[in-house]
Design a protein around this nucleic acid. Structure first.
Lengths: 134, 134
DNA sequence: CCTTGACCTGGAGCGCACTCCAGGTCGCAA
DNA sequence: TTGCGACCTGGAGTGCGCTCCAGGTCAAGG
């Protein structure tokens, strides 16, 4: 693993390296391959996984979708489309736009709730002098 | 249930009303009482729960903490402190401040990831004309 | 040659936060 | 007086997303 020549921008990564770089655990990487979120992961002669830069980029996308709360089932649909090639761009776009909308809501809701929490904090610190906030 | 006189600002609410107003399901309200997140919920003569305005306010706080990702175990600690009276204000404050910090991080991370998603969306729409964004 | 350690597989187990269920009790209304 | 619907209880079940385990393979180092 981890062969690297300076003139060549393509690297390959062991499961451990990939876990570290992607932020997923090795178990999760295996799990994702098992359920089909990762496909076409190369193997070396002794059957071990060899991840490519492309795989890492894809994992970055998955991390992003998971991190913003997309359920696995939907990521699965997205990744099936991604494997389906150029004809699926519209549908992929639709999924991302819908998701983006939900993320927007999520952020707005969090900000709202954070304000309430901060109001409570101020109250505990005795910095609320009188009455309800405007 | 649901007695209301115009001159009196104190109301009581049935489980169903409370569920609707608080955003928790009736089952969740029962569950929260069972585990100790809700305590001192009044009962009427036939053993049914009667929620007060205070209860509703507390539920609002819980909704806020849950909605921002605080685990049940930590909410439990907070609510035990809240029951503990004035001597616990410092500790409650510390919990909320720590939580506020985490919410801040969470929002920042979401915004970051949203940017990546939007970049991808733009890419699908063919609006990325050249190269990496500045 | 033998150990070590990273990796493999299929499948079981887990933690969280609910959610559902069976069986029962009320109070009201037809 | 009977039916209905909202509620009660303890406890079992669920869904999600991993996480762990037993038992095995392989390549390199001492």
């Amino acid at each position: 693993m981890h062969s690297r020549c300076d003139s060549c921008p393509v690297s390959s990564y062991s499961p451990a390296e990939t876990a570290e770089k992607s932020g997923f655990s090795i178990d999760t990487l295996r799990y994702y391959e098992k359920i089909g979120l990762l496909s076409g992961i190369a193997r070396n002669s002794s059957g071990r996984r060899v991840f490519s830069d492309d795989d890492l980029r894809w994992l970055g996308m998955l991390q992003c979708l998971r991190g913003t709360g997309m359920p696995i089932a939907e990521m699965l649909r997205y990744s099936e489309l991604a494997r389906g090639g150029g004809g699926t761009v519209q549908e992929r776009l639709a999924i991302l736009q819908e998701h983006d909308r939900r993320v927007e809501e999520q952020i707005a809701r969090l900000q709202d709730q954070q304000r309430q929490i901060q109001w409570k904090i101020d109250l505990y610190r005795g910095e609320v002098c009188d009455g309800v906030p405007a």
